[in-house]
Amino acid sequence: MIHHIDLTASTNDDARDPQYRHGDVVWAEEQTAGRGQRGHVWSSPKGENLTFSVVLEPTFLPANEQFLLSEAVALALTDTFAAHGIDTRIKWTNDIYAGDRKLVGILIEHNLSGGTLSRSVAGIGINVNQSAFDPALPNPVSMAQLRGRYFDRATLLNAYLESLNRRYAQLEAGDKDGLQRDYRMRLYRLGEEHPYRFPDGTTAPAVMEGVRPSGALILRHEDGAVREYLFKEVEFVL
């Protein structure tokens, strides 16, 4: 069920309420304290975009494979955009890019029970009809800017939820290889050499080879060494 509200601090925080069960959606017209990855704030003008959280209960998924759920969530977005004539790529870990511009931010938060996931909340912010952005943002873009037309947000949300249901069913059926294959094919900058930044502030060029089910990014360095990096151990230089 979609719970459409006018104002909240954070849809992810709201979706933690036990009243919401698997498949429920909290959609807010405005968030006052929306969160992005790496501690960033997600802001959006009221009524122009989609800011929502989906509650999922993937109790079948081992905790060490939780990134597969992230893959399903992200792939459902690329599926939805493709159906609307927009080619997109997944920027590890979860941003969705159109060309070199950011269209979607995703923040997924998990609860564990023993060795499996018990409850996950996928917070998603899609730039839908916004035409003017804060100049401090490095590279935003909206669907309206890309396609030159207005999009009905409720229709778009329902289209995404249908795509998510298909990708989640693929995950639940155990088709991990299929998800991994599709995710890899849609990775932003796959097979290209670009600079990456490391925690000590240094940068070095490397070629992205793929992503493990754990979420580790696989990079091949100039010396031929292949290394794996988890979230916060490396970041893109844009």
Rank of each mutant, 00 (worst) to 15 (best):
M1N: 07
I5V: 14
T8W: 06
S10C: 05
N12H: 08
A15C: 09
A15H: 03
R16P: 00
P18L: 05
E29T: 05
G36R: 10
V41K: 14
S43E: 15
P45C: 07
S53K: 13
V55W: 00
T59A: 15
F60D: 03
P62V: 01
A63Q: 03
E71R: 14
A74D: 14
T78C: 12
D79H: 14
D79Q: 11
T80N: 03
A82G: 01
R89M: 09
W92I: 00
G99M: 02
D100P: 12
L103P: 03
L112A: 11
T116P: 00
M143F: 01
A144C: 08
Q145I: 11
A154H: 13
A154I: 05
Y160K: 00
S163A: 15
Y168H: 07
A169D: 12
D177R: 15
Y183W: 15
R184L: 12
R186Q: 14
Y188E: 01
L190P: 01
G191M: 00
Y196H: 07
T203S: 12
A204L: 12
P205R: 10
E209R: 15
V211I: 12
R212Q: 13
G215Q: 06
A216V: 00
A225T: 14
E228W: 10
F231V: 08
L238S: 12
L238D: 07
